[in-house]
Amino acid sequence: MTTATATRGLVEIHNVRKSFHGTEVLKGIDLTVQPGEVVALLGPSGSGKSTLLRTINHLETVDAGSVTVDGEFIGYELRHGKLHELREREILRRRTEVGIVFQNFHLFPHLTALENVTEAPLALKRLGKDDAAELARGLLDRVGLAHKADAYPRQLSGGQQQRVAIARALALQPKVLLFDEPTSALDPELVGEVLDVIRDLAKLGTTLVIVTHEIGFAREVADGVVFLDDGHVIEQGAPDEVLTRPQHPRTREFLAKVLG
């Protein structure tokens, strides 16, 4: 649960719709994530969780509706009452405010852990080489990998690679951090080390939106749980309410299957 008071990172999603090849996968989603809040997105495969997550930092465009972070559109600007997509350079600038950690790490294999973390601040000319290295070493230490700064991804376990990916996402000091099934590609014995890092982040007051299948983790860490099914928000509320006393039959059915 969050213990710090956050002053930035308000995510507002209004009536978002998204279709792929004629099939609508998001059907008018409305959701607000308060600054510093940790929200877990749950639901069956194909429910729209990952697509919704990717609309927040404009990795997926929307067909209708809007997504803002602290009142600012990530991929669009409003002109004469209509949204117009920004140029790629401006999209990239705004996207730096919303970090994302994927399930499959996406580290650069030819770069060390340290270089993976420094790459974005250097490429965007946010920091000089020495300052970027100092920041990266601090972030690797935060995720328990200070001793692996010079290791290449192939020399790291899956859990270690995912922790480097988290450090990399933090290097630009995002307002919001998104996690798309961050443990689904890991061997079971490596899941805990990644969840421990996310637990620590939750205590710092960063806004976190997490697509996860780890029900126990969501119950422990999240401030709010959102259950999606077939492109709709079916139910949302505090973890104890949604996970222990779900009101919607579809939520109850899903939890019964997942929890056995």
Rank of each mutant, 00 (worst) to 15 (best):
106 H>Y: 13
44 P>W: 08
189 E>C: 05
237 G>F: 14
1 M>K: 14
184 S>L: 10
120 A>R: 02
33 V>P: 05
228 L>H: 02
178 L>D: 11
9 G>T: 05
56 I>D: 02
247 Q>T: 15
211 V>N: 02
131 D>I: 00
153 P>D: 07
249 P>L: 13
141 D>F: 00
135 L>Q: 14
169 A>N: 07
214 E>T: 06
199 R>I: 06
8 R>I: 06
51 T>W: 05
199 R>V: 08
41 L>K: 05
196 D>L: 08
171 A>V: 01
126 R>W: 11
38 V>N: 07
209 V>H: 01
251 T>Y: 09
196 D>W: 02
182 P>N: 02
71 G>K: 01
138 G>A: 09
248 H>P: 13
189 E>W: 07
236 Q>T: 11
77 E>M: 06
239 P>T: 09
259 L>K: 04
127 L>H: 06
61 T>D: 14
134 E>C: 02
160 Q>V: 01
199 R>S: 11
63 D>R: 07
10 L>E: 13
255 L>C: 12
27 K>W: 06
148 K>Q: 12
60 E>H: 13
85 E>K: 13
13 I>G: 04
14 H>L: 04
169 A>Y: 11
94 R>S: 07
175 K>T: 00
55 T>W: 03
183 T>G: 11
252 R>L: 12
70 D>V: 08
43 G>N: 01
228 L>S: 01
47 S>C: 11
219 R>L: 05
212 T>L: 10
139 L>R: 11
222 A>P: 02
70 D>L: 10
189 E>Y: 07
113 A>T: 06
258 V>D: 01
112 T>N: 00
88 E>G: 01
165 A>H: 05
77 E>I: 06
229 D>S: 14
76 Y>N: 09
33 V>L: 08
58 H>C: 12
250 R>E: 13
119 E>W: 09
70 D>C: 05
194 V>T: 04
243 L>P: 05
4 A>R: 13
244 T>N: 15
85 E>N: 00
31 L>S: 04
11 V>Q: 01
244 T>C: 14
103 Q>N: 06
97 E>H: 12
63 D>Y: 10
193 E>P: 01
70 D>P: 05
83 L>T: 06
222 A>R: 06
237 G>Y: 13
28 G>Q: 07
115 E>C: 00
30 D>G: 11
113 A>P: 04
238 A>H: 14
54 R>G: 03
183 T>K: 12
254 F>E: 09
247 Q>M: 14
167 A>Y: 12
125 K>H: 13
228 L>E: 05
79 R>I: 13
186 L>E: 03
250 R>F: 13
164 V>I: 14
172 L>W: 00
